[in-house]
Design a protein around this nucleic acid. Sequence first.
DNA 1: TTGTACGCGTTATCAG
DNA 2: CTGATAACGCGTACAA
Lengths: 346, 346
Amino acid sequence: MATIADVAKHAGVSSSTVSYALSGKRSISGETRQRIEQAITELGYHPNAGARALAGKRSHIIALVVPLHTNVYVPTMMEIAIAVTMAARQYGYDVLLITNDEGPEGVRRVAGSGLADGVILMDVRLDDDRVPVLRAQGIPAALIGIPDDPHGLSCVDHDFAAAGALCADHLADLGHRDVAFIGYAAGVYQRHAGYAERTLNGFRDQAEQRDLRFLHRPCEGTYESTAGTLARILSDRPATTGFVVQNEGAIGPLLSLLRATGRTVPEDASVMAICPDQLAEQYAPRLTAVTGPPNELGSVAVEQVMARISAAADGAPQPEDGLLLLSPDLVVRESTAPAPRRRTDH
Amino acid sequence: MATIADVAKHAGVSSSTVSYALSGKRSISGETRQRIEQAITELGYHPNAGARALAGKRSHIIALVVPLHTNVYVPTMMEIAIAVTMAARQYGYDVLLITNDEGPEGVRRVAGSGLADGVILMDVRLDDDRVPVLRAQGIPAALIGIPDDPHGLSCVDHDFAAAGALCADHLADLGHRDVAFIGYAAGVYQRHAGYAERTLNGFRDQAEQRDLRFLHRPCEGTYESTAGTLARILSDRPATTGFVVQNEGAIGPLLSLLRATGRTVPEDASVMAICPDQLAEQYAPRLTAVTGPPNELGSVAVEQVMARISAAADGAPQPEDGLLLLSPDLVVRESTAPAPRRRTDH
DNA sequence: TTGTACGCGTTATCAG
DNA sequence: CTGATAACGCGTACAA
């Protein structure tokens, strides 16, 4: 492999000149720049990453920590990972993939060894054991998801409250009066999982605003539990015509079950989901859904780490907080329609 | 950050002793080893990755090149990526994620800069433009998938011929006599895509062996094209009772269409797929399927690059070829059953 | 505008 | 069994 010294010799300049020509940190005469560039291409020179990291005190690598057994919809996860990788390249950075089976130790390892200049955490839990490590070591980081105490951290996530509100609004706009919210398993709410709670609150507030009567029912996401959940909803509130589902596992069963009880979607009942578009497209009928842009999640996280990395390098103060909530979009498809005329209207 | 010199001072030894204590490349007295280990934990020392790469001429990083817009089922891709990452850790290696939008240049970049010691390519096409780069630069690599000319390369893939044969055998065992193979779009076969062709050949050979009458029909994978394909099959060979599908997009439509034509699965028609288990489980009825182990694909690829990396480091000759085909498994689920008694049997 | 010289933290070679 | 010391290839203050 050619070194910078080889290039320098070949171009008849000193190696520092080559270095500056590459970094652009001082002006180079057009003529020498020519010679240098030519030498570089002729020799097929690539700066050695290790030497660069050692001398420059930056590896130009960020670590992306991905969950192993994930609650997240996998294609979405992949989309984020790819978005992160491409966004990082814009900054001249590469991405190191870390699986979460290393736990907090993995974060310490890559940051402590200078392998990575910063870290992006996916699938952040409320009480995430990696967060203390970030704080203790002052590691430049961005979190996708929001932990218990986001103080002093850069976080980005979907605006789930807004997502919930969008659902309430859409159903209200269509004239539905009795709606049900089918959510995650009860345990998820009991441990106050951020996204679940925020969605529900957003939905509740807007539902009240719009004078909707609504029921919230947790659901395991299996066929059986969905059947039980739906049965209870229909017996408690037979007039229910609108359903919001935030639980991937429950969507398929719900559609089947509604059909089985003689309700056609969307004529007799409207169903909408809070889920990735890709998933919403897979059902018949295709689902009206509320979604956030996954790749934006990735690119924003990259911006956030980059800001922290350069702040750390400049000795500048770290950006204090950075809670970014990305607005979700409503995409109307075939599973929602105006509420059926009510019996009492006849 | 503590350096090896700090540790040496703290333990009252020279830095080279610390280095050897860590690498184990020469024997250290039990006592000094104690002091060194204590110093390491007390100072929270992590060897600097850049310095290590520079001095040791190895980055301890492999690059994993993932496709952007993928033909592959995404969860499978993710599973492979995670398997690669975990397998690499066993060798003390980390994984750099490279998206294929950089093209062949990306491979050159990470290998040429010494950022990565080796490369794993996913979604390898027959005429893959990254392969020439590997050859020209002599980059240690492993391919997941098999290119046109695998000469001198390490490749690993599913044994699609065996997968095809398993399908033929299973249907024959169940007493089916007329079967149809619904494959990828015609273009895929016209450009002789390896996996498609190999599957079909394996299926054809075994079908002939077992005296099956069979039809191969390409299919776009949309609802409409599947409808057309099925219609033609049923008109050409009304006696068809067994279906093999190798095309994710066609599975759902096929099941719906069979139902719509009054055929229940598996009583009237058996359907089996060549697809990941995870996908097979998603349909109703759950599909009998032939699958290869995705994580093994990842770990084998890692073994292959590692062999090449250490061969390159030792100046040893590279392992010449390394074509590994992983045997697929048949998992019988609810979508296949003995062939219905034939009308002519009455 | 360009060149010189030092340091970054490890590993490997040579002595002892 | 252990210690000095020279690379490794690049970035950057300092000098010209």
